[in-house]
């Protein structure tokens, strides 16, 4: 049951993140939903089990997020624009039809990953401390 709920929440988080461009959602909320999914896992199973299932360090996830967010800003400098300028392209993808791709999505992904990483790190840090 938990597994099903976990994946529903996970999908919901990703959906929120992706739809953020034109509908309610976005990096911050997406990241929070994702982290609540992980928190649910930790509440249900013990830490060891979850660690085995998710063999990555959430501190690194957060660091990766910050890197992405700052990195997209730097990227615009390389193209001669000022720091943090964003652009979009309209791309014709085979399955999705005409899709809009933007550097803002990368930036938002950075935000989402940071939120996910930080929230899980804090909650894990405190809960591990209990034992």
């Amino acid at each position: 049951m938990t597994k099903i709920v976990f994946f529903i929440i996970l999908t919901f988080g990703v959906e929120l993140f992706i739809s953020g461009h034109n509908n309610p959602g976005g990096g911050f909320i997406g990241g929070l939903v994702l982290s609540s999914a992980f928190v649910l896992l930790y509440l249900v199973y013990d830490i060891e089990t979850v660690h085995r299932g998710t063999p990555f360090d959430f501190k690194r996830v957060a660091a990766l997020g910050v890197l992405l967010a700052v990195g997209t800003g730097m990227l615009s400098i390389l193209f001669g624009e000022s720091f943090l300028s964003q652009t979009t392209w309209l791309v014709d993808l085979p399955v999705f039809g005409e899709t809009e791709l933007g550097t803002m999505t990368i930036f938002e992904a950075g935000v989402a990953l940071t939120v996910l990483g930080v929230v899980v790190t804090i909650i894990l840090g405190i809960s591990e401390d209990v034992e």
Partner: peptide, 11 residues
């Protein structure tokens, strides 16, 4: 290039 104004402000 986004319809969600909150997100375009943030991002």
């Amino acid at each position: 290039g986004g319809l969600n104004v909150v997100n375009t402000i943030l991002g």
